[in-house]
Simulated scan of single mutants.
Amino acid sequence: MWIIWRTFLCRSVTLASSGQRFQSTTIVHASQQKTVQHKRILHHQSQPMTWMTKTVGFSQAYISPVFGSFCLPSQIFLTLPRTIKLAVHHQLLLVLMRLRLGLMFTDLGKRFGISRTTACEIFAVWRPILARFMKEKIIAWLPKDTLERIRPQSFSVHYPKATFIIDCTEIFVQRPKNLRKRAQTYSNYNHHNTYKALYCIAPNDFVMFVSKLFGGRASDTFITRNSGLISHLIPGDQVLADRGFTITDVLPPGVTLAIPAFTRGCKELPEHEVTRTRRLANVIIHIERTIRRLKGFTILSNIIPGRIQHVDDIVTICAGLCNCNLS
């Protein structure tokens, strides 16, 4: 249960058994913490469950200096339909189980004592809410002073100015019936139809940017040019990437790009290029580990059916949840 409210970065949440309730939410500041009482009326189902009364909390050791202060907007609860007779935190748990475990709506309906249609409606309602919250509050572009403070020791020696690491990840999707979409989503690398997204992390594995989804046919360079990432760059930034990102010509003045050396056209690399490539590979491995954490959500690791829409929101939510579980 604690992971649900940890997603929204609430310091302490008191859940009432039924009827009306008062919710106490702590707004986390970088220098201080203040508790603000919010009077909210939430409608729960008439039959209370045994574990509905509980107080949960978590440590705010990392998020505090990064985000400053914020809390879950009360407007979120006002947008929920009142026809759903399921507690709000149970609805959120259902959504998280759908993402993490990849359970079908029929299975979720039986677990929560509701119909399959209601379970599908709950996911459809919460999906845009969570995606918007993750974009605005969780997946944030960190300022330079914060990057300096959180940069690991492995970067400080050879890449002290590294701002972020980028790479593309592919999500398998069912082969579309439309021939044009089938051609646009076919990946020559994976020999399968896929969606492709640009993933950008800070040196400490914090997700800073997630692009919209492109077809698997799109190249890494094309996605980087059209994802909106370039607008975040400022002079003095250093981008770390794999050798497929030949984007030097589109980078703003003063921004440098570090990619492994190319072996095409030469029998062997000079000694200094081999050393530089090895050092770069030792830090680029961070983004591979972060993408592996993203694929830990079963809904993204399995083949996504063609009937599922708004996969961009699902990727954004999963990326934001990865930020809430940094270790």
Results as ranks from 00 to 15, higher is better:
G113V: 09
K110R: 14
K196G: 03
S24L: 11
F164Y: 12
S156H: 04
Q20E: 10
H44W: 03
K137N: 15
S327H: 12
R293H: 12
K295W: 06
L300Q: 06
C71L: 09
S24Q: 10
A258Y: 08
T14G: 10
Q32Y: 01
A131Q: 06
R132K: 13
P81G: 07
A183L: 11
T53I: 07
Q20K: 14
L240A: 04
K196D: 05
R149M: 11
N188Q: 09
V250I: 15
K212D: 14
F262M: 09
K144Y: 01
F262T: 14
D220G: 07
T26P: 00
I230T: 06
P65E: 03
R100P: 00
T277P: 08
I285R: 15
I4W: 04
V125Y: 07
L257C: 08
K181H: 13
K135L: 12
T25L: 10
I171R: 00
Q37K: 11
V250D: 08
Q23V: 13
P253N: 13
S59E: 12
T298D: 07
A241N: 02
N190Q: 15
F206Q: 04
T35S: 12
P305N: 09
L326P: 01
Y195K: 06
Q33A: 09
K34S: 11
S211D: 03
L213R: 06
P128E: 05
W2I: 03
G306I: 11
T50P: 08
I171V: 08
D312T: 15
P235A: 06
D107E: 14
W5N: 09
F58H: 11
P73H: 06
P260L: 01
R264C: 03
H272P: 00
S17E: 13
R151H: 04
R111M: 13
L94F: 05
G113H: 12
Y189R: 09
K39P: 04
V125S: 07
Q184N: 14
E288G: 15
G228F: 05
G228A: 07
L103T: 02
R292G: 15
S211Y: 02
R127N: 15
T55M: 07
K135G: 07
Y186M: 02
H89I: 05
V157L: 12
Q20H: 09
I291M: 15
D220Y: 04
H158P: 00
L9T: 09
R98C: 06
S31L: 06
C318T: 05
V66P: 00
I299P: 01
T7S: 15
C71G: 10
Q23G: 07
K144H: 13
T83D: 14
R98H: 15
N323K: 05
P73W: 01
